[in-house]
Design a protein around this nucleic acid. Structure first.
Length: 482
RNA sequence: GCGGAAGUGGCUCAGUGGUAGAGCAUCUCGUUGCCAACGAGAAGGUCGCGAGUUCGAAUCUCGUCUUCCGCUCCA
């Protein structure tokens, strides 16, 4: 068995575990499911909330230079004209094999022209035939719109071959109001970023903050991906954790590097192993229209390396575009240096669902014990859905009463589960499978003798005995040492 | 969208035309019991869906849906 298929087997096991233990379910399953759409269950929702809250803490509340917003998914349709998403997302496009650049099919014309008595075929980008005539001074024999070309392969304006035209309807369309006429068409946002550009002035004015500063947001985005798949890695509805950091154009490279390092440290801090992480700088030809430079933080998923986060230098593209389309000046006046400029933007854009998946993949672990295989999620305690399980060794009334009291003391401080079904061994294994770092076990000694309980460690399975009066203290000490 | 594989209890799978099965998981009762413990019992499936062939279909045929793997994606 190759390493790859072995690892894919691991992914299948994780998908099974996720369903069995209430982490992630296929959407609308009783109706046959919906392709590549997933629901978080009772355990999964805790993990995802933890990941989002940890991000928010690191990127917003622990800092004094970043502000959060929570914008609507629906926005004015012109937002997507300004951002470029409408043009490059919804028209039939052809792609150049050499540069990867996409052209609107109706803006490409095939020309047969005569240069020095020799007939040549060239391709030109223009909005209509009249513009073509103005652009080309040579003797034109014929002008054929690309759509009417009978050639199997057409050259692109920048060399290379043009692909077959495709409809890239990457944005989800919907309607405002019950009447489905085109005047009320709106889109589900394909990225959360634009809300932060559109609210740039609002945040700037209400926060009285000077540049550099950032605006952060978490929320759902929607893209009609051509190829979704790999569990929750690429889905058409997904949640982003994005931050737009506005800075002086002269400092963009410094901040770009800063946010790459900051993000990488964040993933490492919450448990992803360093050997499974890498930074990949984008080649120039894969940069999108708005970006000057981009780096990915990639994680070694069971199928391959995949992007968790892209940190882009979006330059002043978006603010300038919105200035142009809205007519509102989005430039910034720097009082210290007495000059006006449009800020550059560094954007760390993290996938919330992808991050959860990476934490799960990294934590998934099988250990051979004497009789069985122990499956566990070695999640960082801050990411773990349940922090503590309270497990009475038997269901005798005296133990139940004592254990419930322990549970009541803990549940306000930690996410805690109480479980008194079946054997203690099975309960430990169940908690291992959802990544509960600590189990507190109560036995007759606790009740009848010394008022002490056992704390059992998920990873080492070691137990320590502590007085129940000092239980909370002991738990906090254990969490600190993870 | 094209090609390949697959869909049977919660999970993993067996079952090639004759009354739907196993292991694990789940639930109940008992057990002074600490790493998927032991004993007893219970529940759970119109075999993805829809047609067709047949006396009879999980099994054969067609359609359809879904999932997985490869190609253009990127959070």
């Amino acid at each position: 068995m190759s390493k790859n298929s072995y690892q894919l087997k691991e992914l299948e096991k994780l998908v099974s575990l996720a369903k069995r233990r209430g982490i992630i379910f296929p959407s609308s399953e009783i109706y046959g499911g919906l392709s590549s759409v997933w629901d978080y269950g009772p355990i999964g929702v805790e993990i995802k909330r933890n990941v989002k809250n940890l991000w928010w803490k690191s990127f917003v509340t622990e800092r004094d230079d970043i502000f959060g917003i929570d914008a609507s998914i629906l926005m004015h349709p012109d937002v997507w004209k300004a951002s470029g998403h409408l043009d490059s997302f919804s028209d039939p496009l052809v792609e150049c094999s050499a540069t990867g650049k996409r052209y609107r099919e109706d803006h490409i014309f095939i020309l047969e022209i005569q240069i020095k008595k020799e007939n040549k075929l060239i391709t030109i980008e223009a909005s209509d035939k009249d513009e073509v005539k103005n652009l080309v001074k040579d003797k034109i024999i014929s002008i054929t719109p690309l759509a009417e070309s009978n050639n199997k392969e057409n050259p692109s304006p920048e060399g290379g071959i043009l692909s077959e035209p495709r409809n890239f309807n990457l944005m989800f369309k919907t309607f405002i109001g019950p009447a489905e006429d085109s005047s009320s068409t709106v889109y589900l946002r394909p990225e959360t970023a634009q809300a932060m550009f559109v609210n740039f002035l609002n945040v700037l004015n209400s926060s009285r903050k000077k540049i550099p500063f950032g605006i952060a947001q978490q929320g759902k985005s929607f893209r009609n991906e051509i190829t979704p798949g790999n569990f929750t890695f690429r889905t058409r509805e997904f949640e982003q954790m994005e931050m737009e950091f506005f800075c002086n154009p002269s400092e963009d490279e410094k901040w770009h590097k800063y946010w790459i390092d900051f993000s990488l440290d964040w993933f490492k801090k919450y448990g992803l192993r360093e050997e499974n992480l890498m930074i990949r700088k984008h080649e120039n030809e894969e940069l999108p229209h708005y970006s000057k430079a981009s780096s990915d933080i990639e994680y070694l998923f069971p199928w391959s390396w995949g992007e968790l986060e892209t940190i882009s230098n979006r330059t002043d593209f978006d603010l300038k575009a919105h200035s142009k389309f809205s007519g509102k000046d989005l430039s910034y006046f720097d009082q210290e240096n007495n000059n006006r400029y449009t800020p550059f933007v560094i954007e760390p854009a993290m996938g919330a669902d992808r991050s959860v998946l990476a934490f799960l993949c990294d934590a998934y672990c099988e250990e051979e014990t004497e009789k069985e295989t122990r499956t566990l999620l070695k999640l960082h305690p801050d990411v773990a859905p349940i922090k503590i399980a309270v497990l009475p060794l038997s269901r005798k009334d005296s133990l139940t009463e004592y254990s419930k009291k322990i549970f009541d003391d803990l549940k306000g401080l930690f996410t805690t589960q109480y479980d008194d079904t079946q054997s203690i061994g099975k309960r430990y294994r169940r908690q291992d499978e959802i990544g509960t770092p600590l189990c507190v076990t109560i036995d007759f000694e606790s009740v009848e003798e010394d008022n002490s309980v056992t704390i059992r460690d998920r990873d080492s399975m070691e137990q320590i005995r502590v007085s129940s009066d000092k239980l909370i203290e002991a738990i906090n000490d254990k969490f600190k040492s993870f």
